[in-house]
């Protein structure tokens, strides 16, 4: 059974663990960078990206996370996690992990009042997938190596680049574990 870590600094950690377990893998909460050597893949959960970044800096996590990805270990970022993976963020002159070649915009679908759920098709992963968008970002542009997996109202909301996967919505908030299962398969490879 593969071991999948969930970055445990802040956000919807418990839900991702539940989803990972439902997808047939072992879920481990990662609070210290030393734990990264114990796992085969990592999920960066939804939460507040500014809060996570501050804690990542505080505990010197940034390089360890980037190295984890550069050594070929799969990473799946949801919502705030998608922001952390991108190499270009609208309105900011800096990015975070810069592992995926894409430009993203924070809270691009609006504030909480505009948050929504909708059915989307995830190419090669799942049709009629119930996606929950909360103060969600979207991907504005992708580089040539990034494969777009889903769009909603012509905005990119899920993408993949090699062993990196991201979604603007929260697969952990529903009982539909197909996207997490897809990530578990990426890790098993």
């Amino acid at each position: 059974m593969v071991k999948i870590g969930v970055l445990g600094l802040q956000g919807a950690i418990r839900e991702h663990i539940r989803s990972v377990e439902a997808a047939g893998a072992e879920g481990i909460i990662i609070k210290y960078k030393e734990q990264l050597s114990d796992i085969d893949g990592l999920i960066i959960p939804g939460g507040e990206s500014t809060t996570m970044r501050r804690l990542i800096d505080k505990y010197d996590f940034l390089d360890a996370l980037a190295d984890f990805g550069k050594h070929g270990k799969p990473i799946f970022g949801t919502c705030a996690g998608l922001i952390l993976l991108a190499n270009n963020i609208v309105g900011q002159d800096y990015a975070h992990l810069s592992l995926m070649d894409m430009k993203v915009e924070r809270n691009a679908f609006g504030r909480q009042r505009e948050s929504f759920e909708a059915e989307i098709d995830l190419k090669g992963v799942a049709d009629n997938f119930e996606a929950v968008f909360i103060r969600a970002p979207y991907v504005v542009e992708v580089g040539p190596e990034v494969e777009v997996l889903a769009t909603y109202q012509d905005k990119i909301v899920a993408a993949k680049q090699g062993h990196y996967l991201c979604s603007a919505f929260h697969p952990e908030l529903t009982d539909d574990h197909r996207l997490t299962e897809y990530f578990v398969k990426m890790v098993e490879k």
Binding site: R113, I134, L173
Partner: peptide, 21 residues
């Protein structure tokens, strides 16, 4: 069809605040 203001969307927002101040 998208739906706003559902329980999942409203409760989910609070889930994202977990572990925070």
């Amino acid at each position: 069809m998208s739906k706003i203001g559902t329980d999942r969307v409203k409760r989910g927002m609070a889930e994202m605040q977990k572990g925070g101040v």
